[in-house]
Nucleic acid binder design. Sequence first.
RNA 1: GGGCGAUUAGGGUAGUCUGGAUAUCCUUCCGGCUUUCGGAGCCGGAGACGUGGGUUCGAAUCCUGCAUCGCCCGCCA
Length: 603
Amino acid sequence: MQELKRVIESHLGEVMAGQGLDSQSWIQMLVAAREPAQGDIALPCFSFAKVLKQSPVEIAERLCTEIETYMSQNSDLERTLLWVKAVNGYLNFMADPSWIADQVFPEGCSDDAGRGKPSGHKVLIEHTSANPNGPFHVGRARNAILGDTLVRLHRLIGHEVMAEYYVDDMGKQVGILSWALDNLEHDDVERILSQAGIEAADQRWANKQDHQRVRWYQAANILKSDDSEIDAKVGELVRLSEEGDESVLESFRTAYQPVLDGMLETLSRLGIEYDTFTEESRFVIDGSVSEIMSKLEDSPLHDTAENGAHYLELESKGVKGKSTRFYFRRGDGSSLYATRDIAYHQWKWNQCDRLINVLGEDHKLQSMQVSIALQEVGSKAPEVVFYAFIKLPEGKMSTRRANVVFMDDLLDEAETRALEAVKQLRGSEMDEKRMQEIATAVATSAVRFNIINVAPEKGFTFRWEEALNFEGDSAPFLMYSHTRACAIRRRIIQDGHDIDALIEQGLEEQVWNQLPDSPSIVALLRALGRHNDALAGAVNSHRPHLFAGQLLHLASSFNGFYRDHPVFKDGEVSLLNLLLCEVSRRYLATGCKALGIIPIEEM
RNA sequence: GGGCGAUUAGGGUAGUCUGGAUAUCCUUCCGGCUUUCGGAGCCGGAGACGUGGGUUCGAAUCCUGCAUCGCCCGCCA
């Protein structure tokens, strides 16, 4: 409805000025109407009462009369607005449904429907970047799903996007994993874990290395907690890795790579892929970390601790708490994770003009420190999207404590349930293989949607019933609406019609100029009319759930239309209804893809 | 101790930045649509802004006190 706002603004300046209202005072008051019946745009007139010394009700009524007069003399505005009404001190504007259709057609029936034009912007989105120490679990999923959805949304709106995974290949977690694999036998691991009450690994994942090796990681963590010698050995390995010791880094890689591969296999089931992987160690090896450290030493915020460690004092930058120091070099001269992160950010900036990080809320302080440090070395700060954690009803998820729901298990369970549902509906007519394909699409889509449909900053408790919900506000609901539109298409083609010719004919005749008096058609047109605004809003604010909401609304409006208005009846095709069906189908398909929902044609 | 975020019907959730009418949608419960382009759907009804102040013609929205929950305040990653 941004376009409607623009039209109103551009036409009514004179009328409003004639009533003593300059543009500043009224344009910013224009809001979206609350109830559909109240119109599309509303102008509350309460704030004008003081200036004009009149009651809001009177003002609204007078403005209404003036605008109606203006409208009758201006064909542009008359085409745009169906009516203007004064109600209880509000001035309500209702867009003409045919005008809304003007905004939607003919683009809505083209292959670029619901897609932005190439912007020329290069956006690098770093997400997931989970430590490769165990299988991908639901707690980590919010990062990956949010990140991948942002990647898809930015691509849809026309940006060139690089999806990037930062591989932490030299930290303590990988160090523990590596030590465990070198020093523990299979029987040791299982004995330690069973003594600690951790149950045996699921045999289904016997051949998946992430599920296997995490046992070593967990066992080593248990041993380490009451054997300081192990801690020291791991610490030594980590120290060597930080110095760029090639043989240590190599043994780390041997330890984590199969784990990472397993994680990526899981992510791939969710439709999540990356363009680039960057290892943390590269910034130590190529010298950029030392460069950063010497640059930071020139900062006015720089200071040195008693043992020679270096830090930035960030109190003047608004950092508060017990410690306002940001350490970037240890007493022994080595770098820290955050120091490497600064080098990494500089490297990322070389490849893009927009940089987006997806991070858990636990990284807020760290991220602010890195941003300040980046500015100190002359770089820009990234845009950061934070999200709250997904927890279990029993508490926080943790790979170390084996308190997790593995994504592989969730996806399998979702597939099983989806297959049941498909069999129940289509079992008599469809072959097994096809039903399995549909179940896979439904399962991954549903899992993604349940996570993306909630605002990132809201805490999220994982519950099996909700994750596996296929009704109501869910991916299958969107997918189902889409299959209906596809089914209509199939039916028309099957009946021997040239559907593309019919669409072309409808567009040429501009059949939307003669709309039937139908609430469900108007509702659908309004849903279509705001589709692109919703996409832009979601992308610009990094809030994909806003676009998910739009798609639900669109699907629901389409379902209402579907119920009331047959496209194909008694061998005849309604051109108007065909166009509406076609644009809905296209918007749903591209929109679903942008959320990682697979818009299959039958289910 | 300090910082950041959250709190909306029985459950989940949108709206809060930028104050405006009857607070969104799902689930649940109740009542309809006996499926003629696919009912994983559609239509109707019931049910909520944590709490005390303040600002305002008007507060879920802004300010402030309190409560509850989460995250953070490491020469770890």
